[in-house]
């Protein structure tokens, strides 16, 4: 897992949506995040934390209201025509729902051909189709079949093959295994891990399941209500979380071992509305450590001596 310098860089990124009554929903607020070349960065958070929106902002599928995203040195908001096309080839996304992201009227061969011809010649389509199907563990005969003939796990393999068709350098995987059964989930996680290693991909793995994220990631970033709470090496985040939210999130995960009686710290309440987020630290309304200072001051994501970054006044 050799890690190079940063390939994708978010600086002070905010994404806002218009909500009813002229109000503004802050999906992502002032996020700074770097994706290093060759690494797997896990992005975790609960629903409404902004992890999907951040993933989309990184590849220009969501408009920024503030901040910049740089890919390989250039600001992606300034890319036009050929440069934008090149960027789209180099960065691909795999979505959560393999049912909704494949055209039901095209067979697998046609789906892949569409992607392959973006980078390769017509003559190469045949060989490349066989190669891609093999890469994701599907039989060659799959090419003449339609999406509905496949199971959820197989459809996700087709989506991965399509993403790989343009030989990307970066894959944004947005909850790629959330819709799959346990036994199939493990197959897809292994596949992504193998592909990442063999093709030297850089991957942003977005998920709510910390156990899966820890398994596949080199580093983990934890989001809450649009902000990054903590970023650091995967084992550090899981075994010695610094931010009280990370701690609570970890302790809430049911342990698949009946002999372990978890020492659980149950958070009160639920995620506040992103339309009207709390002042100061957004987590303070549920935080066991919060005091008056947390309501006044927004904690910055600051580097700690142990190599991680934490946004908390108390921890």
């Amino acid at each position: 897992m050799s890690q190079g310098k940063s390939i994708l860089q978010a600086q002070n990124v905010s994404v806002e949506f218009k909500a009813q009554g002229g109000r503004v929903l802050k999906a992502v607020t002032n996020v700074n995040l770097e994706l290093h070349r060759g690494e797997v960065l896990g992005l975790v958070g609960e629903s409404g934390s902004g992890k999907t929106t951040l993933g989309r902002a990184l590849i220009r599928l969501a408009d920024l209201s503030n901040g910049t995203v740089h890919f390989d040195g250039s600001d992606i908001s300034t890319l036009r025509r050929n440069d934008l096309r090149a960027f789209r080839r180099r960065v691909q996304i795999v979505f959560q729902d393999p049912y909704g992201s494949l055209n039901p009227r095209m067979n697998v061969g046609a789906i892949l051909e569409e992607a392959i011809t973006l980078t390769d010649s017509k003559e190469a389509v045949d060989a490349r189709t066989v190669e891609l199907l093999d890469l994701v563990g599907l039989p060659t005969e799959s090419r003449s079949r339609f999406p509905h003939e496949f199971s959820g796990g197989q459809r996700q393999r087709i989506c991965i093959a399509r993403a790989l068709a343009v030989r990307p350098e970066v894959i944004i995987a947005d909850e790629p295994v959330a819709a799959l059964d346990v036994s199939i989930q493990a197959q897809i996680v292994n596949l992504l891990q193998d592909l990442q290693r063999d093709l030297k991909l850089t991957m942003l793995f977005i998920a709510h399941d910390l156990a899966v994220v820890r398994h596949i990631s080199d580093r983990i970033a934890v989001m809450y209500l649009g902000r990054i709470m903590e970023v650091g090496p995967a084992n550090q985040i899981v075994f010695s979380p610094a931010h009280p939210y990370t701690q609570a999130l970890l302790s809430a995960i049911p342990v698949p071992d009946p002999t372990v009686k978890p020492n659980r710290q149950i958070l009160e309440g639920e995620l506040p509305s992103p339309i009207d987020p709390p002042s100061g630290c957004v987590f303070r309304t549920r935080c066991p450590l919060a005091d008056a200072a947390c309501a006044k001051q927004i904690p910055l994501l600051e580097a700690r001596s142990d190599g991680r970054m934490v946004a908390c006044l108390k921890a």
Binding site: E46, L210, A252, R264, L267
Partner: peptide, 8 residues
């Protein structure tokens, strides 16, 4: 449900 709500 989210994991922290699931715990509740």
């Amino acid at each position: 449900l989210d994991v922290t709500v699931q715990a509740q």
